[in-house]
Design a binder for these strands. Sequence first.
DNA 1: GGTACGATTGTCT
DNA 2: GACAATCGTACCT
Length: 215
Amino acid sequence: MRDLSGTAFFDRPVVEVAQDLLGATLTRCAPEGAVTLRLTEVEAYDGANDPGSHAYRGRTRRNGTMFGEPGHLYVYRHLGLHHCVNVVCGPRGAASAVLLRAGEVTEGAALARARREASGVARTDRDLARGPARLAVALGLDLADDGAAVTEPDGDLVLVPAVAPAGTVLSGPRVGVSGDGGNADLFPWRFWLDGEPSVSAYRPAPPPRRTPPAT
DNA sequence: GGTACGATTGTCT
DNA sequence: GACAATCGTACCT
């Protein structure tokens, strides 16, 4: 059995890591308290080989973290409104990452809910981390956490893989990815735990916008 | 320097 | 079920 502690867990093929992350717990310690959630839904992005990945077109100012060490967070802002959280995987430079799409808050639910309310909307516990942007809010993560390591046992961010198989893992097309050229079926790299209520609802990517023909 | 668009969410009908 | 919000980044001229 390989030693998968520390960065070794993340220094593997991204699709492999993604599935192993299901059931893992991610704890975020902040001055106001700690929030722990159990990951129930993720998506894999395979760096330069994956048209849906931010890294497909090479290294840029935004995605530089993806090209760094595995086991670090890649946080980016989406639509100027939300934050999405990834964990860098594979060997350094592969620019692979796993998007954390949803989780179940197992500790610090009160704090997570307070954060959600502060962002404008209060919902049920089930909804606290149901969806990538909500997950980021629940954990209190934003761009300032881009590049943070999750492999330090004493750090503010600690990701602990599940010790036992988390349950039935299902897979399917990724959500909201328009950069795959419409070939969502070629990358069935969305993984979630069967029967988990915290898994976000599936929404197919909207068709790419086209300039209307000049009639 | 300018423009188009996005790994989503919340609200409105 | 459909659409607007909102701004940083990437890409083009």
